[in-house]
């Protein structure tokens, strides 16, 4: 009986691994295809199967996309914008979230539900008034125009951090208050150190969303001086279909690698932090 059970468990475990590994391959398959295809020569790209390995591997696509199509500066702009927005969101969300989580003030619940409600408004159409506003502010085709709409935090970010703050026992704070600590000190010395993982999560989510954002940069930027990587890649698509798939794929690979690097760097924090938020 016991051996039967062990065998069954072992069998189940193997089966589970097979399923999980298949799922993992499916998850990264498209990335591998992009990476593989970006090393193919243009004439091989369209004539061989997408999963066939690059037989005559070449770096030409990367050098072309880097030198001829300005991807190096687009990547730099993307990095600049993503870092600035991430930094702003983490700082301002933490401040706002603390107010919502711990302080009593008139209008709090109304305001908080207002934040939640805006998450439900379709964003696409608000871009028209937003663009016209930016024009009035003289911010079209500037980094400020790219950064401003999201740098002060989003309802989602405030919501995420607030939920975490509420799980932190308030005894600590009460003790600090008795010792005469100010609200700012409590936030910086007590809350933030206890919230590193959730802040790392928010940072990652923000970084990825900003990095991948296409539609706002498309509307607000004009010149190569402010162009970001998504717009740069989108601009390479041809009139009806892509005339330069090798360039697009190499650009896509270049755009993805830093993102994956950032994720791998922070992934431990992210998983832990989501666990710690408790989300309850």
């Amino acid at each position: 009986m016991r051996t039967h059970r062990t065998i069954a468990t072992a069998f189940g475990r193997t089966g589970l691994y097979v399923v999980l590994i298949a799922g993992a391959l499916l998850s990264i398959g498209p990335y591998l295809m992009i990476l593989n295809a970006s090393f193919k020569r243009p004439q091989d790209l369209l004539t061989t199967d997408a999963w066939a390995p690059a037989r005559h591997a070449t770096f030409d696509n990367f050098t072309a996309v880097w030198n001829q199509y300005g991807m190096s500066s687009f990547l730099l702009h993307t990095l600049l914008v993503s870092v600035a927005v991430t930094l702003g969101q983490v700082v301002f969300s933490a401040m706002g979230a603390y107010a919502f989580a711990r302080l009593e003030f008139p209008g709090r619940d109304l305001l908080f539900w207002g934040y939640i409600a805006t998450m439900m408004v379709p964003q696409m159409i608000t871009l028209v008034p937003l663009f016209l506003m930016m024009r009035e502010l003289g911010l079209v085709d500037t980094f400020a125009g790219l950064i401003l709409p999201t740098v002060f935090g989003t309802p989602y970010g405030i919501f995420l951090v607030r939920q975490h703050f509420r799980t932190i026992p308030s005894d600590l704070e009460a003790a600090a208050r008795i010792d005469g600590a100010s609200t700012w000190t409590i936030l910086v010395r007590i809350m933030l150190p206890l919230s590193k993982p959730i802040l790392a999560t928010l940072a990652t989510i923000t970084f990825i969303n900003t990095w991948n954002n296409l539609i706002w940069p498309l509307i607000i930027t004009n010149s190569d001086r402010t162009k970001v990587i998504t717009v740069g890649i989108a601009a390479l698509q041809g009139q009806h279909v892509s005339d330069l798939p090798h360039i697009v794929l190499a650009g896509a690979a270049l755009a993805l690698l830093p993102l994956i690097a950032v994720f791998l760097m922070f992934q431990r924090h992210i998983v832990r932090s989501i666990a710690l938020t408790g989300l309850k």
């Binding site: 990095l79 600049l80 914008v81 870092v83 930094l87 911010l139 500037t142 980094f143 950064i147």
Partner: peptide
């Protein structure tokens, strides 16, 4: 990282202000 980020933010905003108009 924080320092780099702050300086890029400042840099970006000044560049933006300098370039408009």
């Amino acid at each position: 990282l924080a320092l780099a980020a702050t300086s890029t933010l400042v840099l970006g905003l000044t560049a933006a202000c300098g370039s408009s108009g």
